[in-house]
Amino acid sequence: MQTLLQQIVNGLVVGSVYAVVALGYTMVYGILGLINFAHGEVLMVGALVALSAITFFQSVLPDLHPIAYFVMGLLVAMPVCMAVGYTIERTAYRRLRNAPRLAPLITAIGVSFLLQTLAMIIWGRNYHSFPQLIQTAPIEIVAGVFMTPVQMTTVGVSAAMMIGLVILVTRTNMGRAMRATAENHRVASLMGVDTNRIIALTFIIGSALAAVAGVMIASNYGVAHYSMGFLPGLKAFTAAVLGGIGNLAGAMVGGIVLGLVEAIGAGYIETWTGGWLNSSYQDIFAFLILGIVLIFRPTGLLGERVADRA
């Protein structure tokens, strides 16, 4: 029972990060019908930029509170990632908006690997240890169930990001313009919405979320490297599909559910398969869920709208 509870807690932590990243996929998909394959790489850029920023501030401004460095890292990583997201949209995707269906996806894959390569050039191919600025000593929250302050921060920050995004989308003019554009570009632009601007903004917001997620992941695992964005990106995409792509609430639910399935699955797979498979197979859960959802319920858990681009 305690193991199960502990796995649930771990799953919630991971799942909340997936949810934040999934929002980026789902927003772009909702508006452009494009799988922004490079989104995971933006997350990686966020983590590595934060790492460099923290290292820099630690050397020029010693003796600050660790949390201050953490916040500074975030504050540098977010605008950088926003710029990266904007640049990707502007230079690669915008020209392909009316291209045949596979062209944008192939380009997105290219962008993804280009970002990895550039990161490899800038930060090298080694694993960097990411400073543990937030306490990592586990605290017993319920009898036998532990949670570290980093994990608590992760859940808290993720929740804040999600709430902020929901408010932005539902309560502001910009959000209304985004929803209108997602519904129908042409009509939205006839109604006076600058759709190019809205699409760019979508990328920028998604990238800011990815930056935060990247810093969270790096803080939780204590490492950052050039290829760290790929798996979380793919899993977050799975989460978005699971929840119903194009649907914000779906992305959040999907993220949490995927986190839980993975954590519980990893905890029990050895018992289930009689020792044949163990927790090193953890990653196949996401792929299996992705396949199963797409094949049996392509609209996802909460999805109704299926953008038909075939």
């Binding site: 596979l102 996806l105 792929f287 992705l290 396949g291 797409l294 075939a310």
Partner: peptide, 22 residues
Amino acid sequence: TLRLRGDYLAIVTLGFGEIIRI
């Protein structure tokens, strides 16, 4: 994957490749 549209098919096949590697 027969019924999947182009971009979804791409991601599922990617997952398949990764599963084989795992």
